[in-house]
Design a protein around this nucleic acid. Structure first.
Lengths: 214, 214
DNA sequence: TGTTCGGGTTACCCGCAGTAACTCACGTGT
DNA sequence: ACACGTGAGTTACTGCGGGTAACCCGAACA
């Protein structure tokens, strides 16, 4: 073989790839989830086939982008989760970090939540659920791991931790999505409301006197 | 004008519409979220333009389908929510009803969660969030209403109820999605885990002795 | 008998994912 | 010095799915 340098310069294509990803980022930031391969290629100053050479597939590019942003987001969340404070404060900080992130870049966030969606469906008998939202899955698993590591949940705690991880992430996501769309209140109030919910206020709140009881 | 009957027979087109919706249902049940207009038309034994005459748009058909299923699901959930039992039992029954529904028809469920996704984005300054998942929004609002009606949340309780409604629905949805994909446990265990979470067990559980504390 | 209206069809446009086949520049082996 | 092949890049295509324009036919009505 005769590459330009047989062992040196490993990052020739790597740098190109990063350039492409940054261009894709820019387009996604501008166009949201409907960013097309053509548009991304144009923004990068090249044409489609190169994108396909580098990422193979639209899903491939999506995934590469998703990994980048998910990693970044996870770092922020881990920082919030690891801060030296009591548990409730940390949960609040984590929620707030997530909400601040999606507030700062709604387009990117929306893009990450609706990736690919195809994956040819022939995956294993049922196929359902493997696509959908890798970001949420990763967040859920990550949170599950943190919970499992730190909270004493007794026997079967591993499974409970995973249930909680995915449940909490879903709560965060759906509430954030709704909040972004309607802006019914400030971020702090949303954080407080969700934390109250996680802290069991639903169990302790009394029935309304006029209602049929809940 | 000369309709077949000027005031009588109001349901000529209505029945057609229902036929089309049932055909669409069948296709969605078979093909999942990637059901195409062509396929639906073929299943109904007609061609695309008729679908467009009836529903205007792919989003229109999606919405009609979504309304049907959402209504049905909401009826079941309301029944579970209104059963004569203590609050916790009712929450469990509601979660279980939802999970049973998505378990019974995963394709339909997946279809409902990923509608349209386009809507030309020129909607109002930000545009973000209005598409996405009407089903989840409706469920969230509905639950918010029930909570607001029955639970005494003090001042600002309306907003808190909405936050909780969307948060709980999101928790249910994400956990259900993950569970459908991986089947990590039985439905009962998932229900129990989520209910424990809502009942504040995260607040009361102790730190693991070996972990850094959570 | 002609006309018009509603349900229907064919044949098309457009945009996008994905690909085949070609070009060009450059470093290499002889 | 010359052919070579390799890799980055391009043009030009296929295929498909959403959406639409224009035509078509049968039935009620005058």
């Amino acid at each position: 073989m005769h590459t330009t340098a047989q062992a040196g310069e490993p990052g020739a294509a790597e740098r190109r790839r990063r350039e492409l990803l940054e261009a894709a980022d820019r387009v996604v930031l501008r166009d949201g989830p409907k960013a097309s391969m053509n548009a991304i290629a144009a923004e990068a100053g090249i044409t489609k086939p190169i994108l396909y050479r580098h990422f193979g597939d639209k899903a491939g590019l999506y995934q590469a982008l998703a990994v980048r942003h998910t990693d970044a987001l996870l770092d922020s969340l881990r920082a919030a989760l690891d801060a030296p404070a009591e548990r409730r404060r940390r949960v609040e900080a984590t929620l707030d970090t997530y909400l601040a992130a999606i507030e700062a870049r709604p387009q990117v966030y929306r893009f990450l939540m609706h990736p690919a969606e195809d994956s040819q469906s022939t995956e294993r008998g049922f196929d359902v659920g493997l696509h959908s939202a890798p970001l949420l899955r990763r967040l859920g698993e990550e949170l599950a791991q943190v919970i499992g590591e730190r909270v004493d949940l007794g026997p079967g705690g591993e499974r409970t931790a995973r249930i909680w991880g995915h449940g909490i992430v879903g709560m965060m996501h759906a509430a954030g999505d709704w909040w972004l769309g309607e802006r019914p209140c400030g971020r702090a109030e949303l954080v407080a409301g969700l934390t109250d919910l996680l802290w069991g206020r639903l169990a302790t709140a009394g029935n309304r006197v006029d209602g049929p009881g809940f």
